[in-house]
Design a protein around this nucleic acid. Structure first.
Lengths: 122, 122
DNA sequence: CGGGATCCCCACGGATACTG
DNA sequence: CAGTATCCGTGGGGATCCCG
């Protein structure tokens, strides 16, 4: 896969772009990270571990990640109900790439913040 | 930087998250890629090379990337005006990470599309 | 406990017209 | 040529209430 193919792959409505939008959305990465830190978490646990997420968005994000087979959802027919979420192998394979991005972001964060300030003052 | 710090770094309104949101927005990656393929492009060239982007979004994306010091904007006081854009070193340093994500996306795209279909049929 | 269903806001982004 | 300005639709996402 060469550069041009990569670029073409990014055009709107393209499946690759579609897949990558998961990385870019507001909560997916955070949910994946949380699931990596503590494998097999229940809904409420996830909600506690990601304090800022709303119930609606946690539900929606979990559904997307499950639909993409990045996480596994296991429901146990008990009362009260219990549902456990965990990473699939595919989900795990994505995390190192996100790690790299995070490392880059942390390493360049200060520079970028500084650059933004200077840009505003121009 | 350990896992928990990484995760904390992702919390809303955090600078790292802020930086990463660039990766997630609709056009930034595509502009960076286009600039990598042909270094030093003018506004119109970029617009031609990214057919689907609107003028407004190209302008906005270029401004963001310039503010973050990922690209360099050089305006030449001529008539008609000429403006050239190119990647900075910081911009170049980000591209390999995006590459990795794209490779992952292409490698897993089919699986994911298939998984989504099956999820809908469930 | 693990969600669904609703209402609502506003930021992203497209289309169009105008300017130095 | 390289933008700016404006209008406007859509949908992401928060808050709240409800249910098995």
């Amino acid at each position: 896969m060469n550069r041009n193919e990569l670029r073409d792959a990014l055009y709107p409505n393209c499946p690759v772009r579609n897949v990558l939008s998961r990385v870019g959305d507001k909560w997916s990465m955070l949910v994946l990270f949380t699931l990596e830190a503590n494998e097999r978490q229940r809904f409420k646990e996830l909600q506690r571990n990601i304090p800022d997420i709303s119930q609606k968005m946690l539900t929606a994000t979990l559904k997307m990640l499950e639909a993409d087979a990045l996480i596994l959802r296991e429901a146990f027919p008990e009362i009260p109900p219990r549902v456990e979420y965990s990473l699939t192998d595919k989900g795990k394979s994505l995390l190192p790439l996100i790690d790299n991005l995070l490392v880059w972001a942390s390493e360049n964060m200060e520079d970028i913040m500084e650059a933004r300030k200077n840009y505003l003052l121009k």
